[in-house]
């Protein structure tokens, strides 16, 4: 499995219902928006619980990895400004057009700027993962001239990333709208 960066890990192993969810709520309260929490639990019901809880409270449930009897759940704390996405970067491309471009086997770069845990559970085949917060340290991994499609979940983080790239000499950058939340094309996860 690839490295999956989380901002905080909660040990709820051995705890029975309702403790995992009670502890998760507490941990999420102190977490910063956009950050990822990993919850390690052994309660078999926790998978359904954490998923339902995340959806009901508006957080993003990323997925669960089972490892030797321990369920590792990943959720990302949502931020309020993400849903009211007002993008500023002028060059955009729709999901459908990106899908076509990829099908035509054009030589393009898909840059996924979501957190690594989000990327791990679901991403476009061949996409490069560089979370928005680490983008500046990794400009050297990218080619300034190649056609680059920047994608996140809803188009907000990719908008910021596109602006950053453009102001650092990248000339062929497009923001993908709306992004992975509306992506019906091929995806892969860490198992594949």
């Amino acid at each position: 499995m690839e490295k999956m960066k989380v901002n905080q890990t909660l040990d709820a192993k051995g705890l029975a219902c309702p403790m995992p969810i009670v502890k998760t709520k507490k941990a999420m309260k102190d977490l910063e928006s956009g950050h990822v929490l990993e919850i390690q639990a052994t309660d078999k019901g926790s998978k359904a619980d954490i998923k339902a809880w995340s959806e009901s409270t508006g957080h993003q449930y990323l997925g669960t990895i089972e490892e030797g009897g321990v369920l590792n759940h990943f959720i990302r704390k949502s931020s309020h400004d993400e849903t009211t996405s007002e993008t500023k970067y002028p060059y955009t491309i729709s999901n459908e057009d990106l899908m076509k471009t990829l099908e035509d086997n054009e030589q393009v770069v898909v840059l996924d700027v979501r957190e690594t845990a989000e990327y791990a559970f679901n991403h476009i085949p061949g996409a490069i993962s560089i979370p928005l917060g680490e983008l500046e340290d990794h400009f050297d991994q990218l080619n300034k001239a190649s056609k680059t499609f920047v994608i996140c979940r809803t188009g907000t983080r990719s908008d910021l990333a596109s602006q950053k790239l453009a102001s650092n000499g990248f000339t062929n950058v497009f923001n993908v709208l709306p992004g992975m939340s509306g992506w019906f094309g091929k995806t892969v996860n860490f198992n594949q």
Binding site: C17, P18, I21, V22, T24, K25, S56, T57
Partner: peptide
């Protein structure tokens, strides 16, 4: 009390 604590976690 389990339901109550769960509901509180649901805000």
């Amino acid at each position: 009390y389990i339901i109550a604590n769960g509901a509180a976690a649901y805000d």
